[in-house]
Amino acid sequence: MTQSSSSRVVAIGDIHGCVHALDTLVKIADLQPDDTLVCLGDLIDQGWESKEVLDLLIELSERCNLVAIRGNHEEMFLAALESERAKESWMLFGGTTTVNSYHFGGDIDAVPAEHIEFIRSTVDFYETDTHIFTHALYLPDVPPEEWPPHILRWTLIEKPYPEPHVSGKTVVVGHTEQRSGEILDLGHLICLDTACYNYGWLTALDLTSGEVWQASKWGQLKERPSEPMPIPVPKPPVSD
Rank of each mutant, 00 (worst) to 15 (best):
L156C: 13
Y197Q: 08
M1W: 12
Y197I: 05
R153H: 13
E62N: 10
E52T: 13
L66H: 03
D193R: 04
L207H: 00
G181D: 09
R153A: 07
L56Y: 09
I151W: 04
L56N: 02
K51N: 08
W218Y: 10
E163F: 14
K222Y: 00
W213C: 00
S61T: 06
D185L: 07
S167I: 10
I151F: 02
D45I: 11
D240K: 09
G95Q: 07
E158N: 06
S226Q: 12
L184E: 07
I151A: 01
Q178Y: 04
M1K: 14
Y199L: 08
Y126W: 15
I116W: 14
V123R: 00
V38F: 01
T98A: 10
K217W: 01
V9L: 10
I119V: 11
L60K: 02
L22F: 04
S6C: 15
A204G: 12
P164V: 09
A21I: 08
H115N: 01
K27A: 15
L156H: 14
E49F: 14
R63E: 15
T176F: 09
T122V: 04
F133C: 00
G200E: 04
T97W: 08
V53L: 10
Q46H: 15
V233P: 03
L156K: 13
I116L: 15
L43D: 01
F93L: 06
A195K: 06
V238K: 12
R85H: 12
I108W: 08
W201K: 01
E127N: 07
V19R: 11
R85P: 04
H131G: 02
C18W: 05
V26H: 08
L31A: 14
C18K: 03
Q178T: 06
N198A: 13
T170N: 05
H20S: 14
P148H: 00
G94Y: 03
K159L: 12
T2Q: 15
I69E: 06
Q214M: 10
T208K: 07
S180K: 05
P236Y: 11
H131N: 12
S61D: 07
K169A: 10
F93W: 14
Q220V: 13
D240L: 13
M229S: 01
A113G: 03
T134P: 04
W90K: 03
P140C: 09
S61N: 12
V166Y: 12
E82V: 00
E82G: 07
R63T: 12
M76C: 06
F133V: 05
V123Y: 01
I151H: 01
P143Q: 15
E62H: 13
V171R: 06
L78G: 00
I12K: 02
V212Q: 03
F77L: 14
P143T: 13
V111Y: 07
L22M: 09
L186H: 08
C39S: 14
Q32T: 06
S7W: 15
G106F: 09
R63I: 09
